[in-house]
Amino acid sequence: MAQRNCTYRLSELAEKLDGVIQGSDGTIFGLNTLEKATQEQLSFLANPRYVSQLTSTSAGAVLVTPEMADQVTGTALIVDSPYMAFAKVSQLFDWRLDDESEGVHPSAFVHASATIGSNVTVGAGVVVDANVTLEDNCIIGPNCVIQAGSIVGQSSRLEANVTLYPDVVLGQNCLVHSGAVIGADGFGFAPSKQGWVKICQLGGVRIGHSVEIGANTTIDRGALDHTYIGDGVKLDNHIQIAHNVVIGEQTAIAGCTAVAGSTKIGRHCTIAGHCGITGHLTIADHTHITAMSLISKSITASGQAFSSGTGQEKHSDWKRNVVRFRQLDDMARRLKQLEQKIDNLSIEGLNK
């Protein structure tokens, strides 16, 4: 398992998590599931469907709520929210914390005009172009390319093979996963009789603090103004963010979703996987969009949930429903004709 090589006393973790130990103190070397944890590992119960595993787990301790503590046969670490506690303690065992490299690898290229802060790591094969700024405590993974005028904020990390095009500003404490491309051209072309005429994308990308960007996600540069990603935004793998999109603070978007150009997404939104959001829309704060939804109209009232994808069903049922769906227009016309006949009969009855 890719976990940091470290140990904690359970009492130390209890103090960090504002938890209470039920049972004996012990040493914790890592985290694992209820099913696979050993005596030296910490596990957690956040989903009621796994309650039965509390009696069979070999975990050295289990994070549970006060209501579930009496069902733990071994040691329990009682906290208000086991899932939140698990999230916090996972950061203590993150394998990235074992990185001890620092400085510029001999195979990296750093332009003479670039500004490199203190405690910066630049990995093998990295290219740092003219007038780039890498602020203090940055880690740039192998084979990354950071093009002219871009800025990587303090304590941010680029995993291997990330590309930042020119004029990309990445905030502090960001994490960008491998294969992400930030600042590529937006999809802008004007039609002509001779073919498509390219519209050069002259804006940049501005990314706030504490943003995480998943593997192979792409964020296009603006056409004139910038593309903006707010503080605390979390983007999953394989997401497409088009030119001049604005994403508000603390919004989270799951994998394979695509957002078309100039759409503005509010703060604290959650957008599930495989969604399509068309261009030039406004989506209000605290909107939730379920998986495989197509959003083609603006959402102006905050706090609503929207769906357009179909839920799971048996293939035989799905085939019948598809046939009926294709008949909807004809059925609607026939229904309208029937309503008209009923209205006419009612009128005739009143006139008698």
Rank of each mutant, 00 (worst) to 15 (best):
T7D: 09
Y8T: 07
A14D: 03
D18C: 12
G19T: 09
V20E: 11
I21G: 00
S24Q: 15
G26W: 02
T27C: 13
G30E: 12
G30Q: 11
G30Y: 07
Q39I: 11
S43I: 06
S43W: 05
F44G: 02
N47L: 11
V51C: 02
V51F: 09
Q53Y: 12
L54A: 09
S58W: 03
V62M: 03
T65N: 06
T65F: 07
T65K: 15
P66V: 14
M68H: 12
T73W: 07
T73I: 14
T73V: 15
A76R: 00
L77F: 03
V79W: 00
A85K: 11
V89T: 05
D94R: 09
V104F: 01
V104L: 06
P106M: 07
A108C: 11
V110A: 04
H111E: 10
T115I: 14
G117E: 00
T121S: 08
V122K: 00
N131D: 15
N131G: 05
N131E: 14
L134T: 09
L134A: 04
E135S: 06
N137I: 08
C138H: 07
G141Q: 07
I146L: 12
S150T: 07
V152T: 04
G153L: 10
Q154M: 11
Q154R: 15
S155P: 09
S155F: 03
R157N: 00
N161Y: 05
T163K: 07
T163L: 13
T163E: 03
L164F: 08
D167L: 07
N173C: 10
L175G: 00
V176N: 00
H177R: 12
V181C: 09
G183F: 05
D185P: 01
D185F: 07
G186H: 06
F187S: 12
F189D: 11
S192T: 11
Q194V: 11
V197P: 01
V197K: 10
L202P: 00
G203I: 13
G203E: 14
G204L: 10
R206F: 14
I207P: 06
G208I: 07
S210Y: 15
V211S: 02
E212W: 03
G214F: 10
D220Q: 05
H226E: 13
Y228V: 14
G230M: 05
G232C: 06
G232S: 06
V233F: 08
V233M: 02
D236C: 07
Q240V: 09
I241K: 04
A242S: 10
I247F: 10
G248M: 03
G248L: 02
E249M: 06
Q250G: 08
C256N: 12
V259M: 06
A260I: 01
T263R: 09
G266N: 08
R267F: 01
H268E: 08
I271D: 06
I277M: 04
G279W: 08
G279Q: 10
T282Y: 09
H286N: 15
H288Y: 10
H288R: 15
I289H: 11
T290V: 10
A291T: 12
S293I: 01
S293T: 15
S296K: 13
I299D: 04
T300Q: 13
S302M: 02
S302K: 10
S302Q: 14
G303T: 13
A305Q: 15
S307E: 02
G309K: 08
Q312H: 07
E313F: 00
E313M: 14
D317S: 13
V322W: 03
V322C: 10
L328F: 12
A332P: 00
R333Q: 12
Q337T: 13
L338Q: 11
K341L: 13
E348G: 00
N351Y: 10
N351S: 14
